[in-house]
Design a binder for these strands. Structure first.
Lengths: 218, 218
DNA sequence: TGATTCTCTGGAACGTTGTTCCATAGACAA
DNA sequence: TTGTCTATGGAACAACGTTCCAGAGAATCA
């Protein structure tokens, strides 16, 4: 019954950690059962003893990242502040692990999304809303938080190499400026706002906006 | 120079139409160059003369669906109403073609997302906001609209088979109720709200909420 | 201790995928 | 007719997720 104790024994946890490392360094397409097996110095078949398939592995990896992010959220005095911190935690986690975003948008109501929903909901319960309003508020916040975080992560990492990010946004701005003037007047006009944009600040402002709407409708 | 006029000649448009049909009937994994070739009565290689690769084909298919949805949006008296109609158009398009959602979340700032951003932005220009606020408002709305639409589409089609949808939500509610009481108190309590939920109504309410926030900060 | 059972391993093999390559068919220009 | 260019479709390739299985190692039993 006790699991075998070979040296460096394979385990579900070690597999998930290796998968996260692979996804972080090689990108979304870098996770391959062959690459994973090489990294773990084993064969592809052995991995299937601990993990059902690639989908389950991706869910588990996202779950680990989001779970860790949520556990790192400090306690707060008010529900409003707590929700803001949860939002920032998720935002930064997806920014640091962009593949989590792509993974999450294909399984709402399940592990990774459900955990965020739960944390948000618990704070909303303290806000004295009727149950239907709690559900609406939690859904709205969840969609906004995950939606913005995914879009942000697509623009490159926020903290680690700020150069890459600015360069990427500058390049996107140039592409917008080169668009057809008749078909895309707004994108052309607004392109200047793109580089050097305070994404995290605007994100939090959006959360506050939704929260004030929720509290006003109470 | 004039393209060959064999009967039923292959064309980029015919390929995209076939791809959309395949995605709609067979799901996200149903789009295969072999299946596509069979459907078009040709070989896989011929398709590559008109389309660079699968990614471009998916972008083009999403672009066609979203473009069609945006073209179908009726004119409105006020910017607020126009934005609401754009939101509903996108929501229903993604609901009818769920694969569009998964596709869009991997390319913000490019064709399919950019078009929605442009339409939203043009309405916001009429609202007399300073440019930075226009950018923020358009980004917030875009993230919310696409985020909620994707999540909604994951729960099954809204109109076509209402039975499937209710059954799916009922099943999800049961799974939530079976969760660990200590770890997921909110999800368990709120599970009853899940089936029979007016998704479109709540979605529009969320849009109105953000819009009122935007107008209030003017 | 030795024999047996079970968990776990890792490499080979299968079917499918996206993509490339190329001989060549059809339409047009000279 | 002859030659040129666009377009075709089938064969071939590498890489992937997954399955399969012979057997290594640990645990259990006699």
């Amino acid at each position: 019954m006790a699991p075998a104790k070979r040296e460096q024994a394979l385990s579900r946890e070690r597999i998930i950690d290796a998968a996260i490392a692979l996804l972080d360094t090689e990108g979304e397409d870098g996770l391959t059962f062959r690459a994973l097996a090489t990294r773990l110095a084993t064969g592809a078949g052995a991995i299937y003893w601990h993990v059902a398939n690639k989908g389950e592995l991706l869910v588990a990896a996202s779950h680990a990242v989001i779970g860790h992010a949520l556990d790192g959220v400090a306690a707060s005095a008010t529900p409003h502040e707590a929700i803001r911190r949860i939002a920032i935690g998720v935002f930064e986690a997806i920014d640091a692990h962009p593949w989590v975003g792509a993974q999450m948008s294909r399984a709402p109501g399940q592990p990774p999304m459900l955990d965020i929903f739960e944390r948000l909901g618990r704070q909303l319960q303290a806000l004295d809303l009727p149950e239907p309003a709690q559900f609406t508020a939690a859904s709205t916040l969840l969609s906004y938080i995950v939606g913005v975080s995914i879009q942000n992560a697509r623009n490159g990492r926020l903290f680690d190499p700020p150069v890459d990010r600015d360069a990427h946004l500058e390049q996107l701005a140039q592409r917008w400026r080169a668009l057809d003037a008749h078909a895309y007047p707004f994108a052309r006009a607004i392109a200047t706002q793109l580089p050097g944009h305070d994404d995290l600040g605007e994100f939090v402002a959006g959360v506050d906006l939704i929260l004030s709407g929720i509290e006003a409708s109470r």
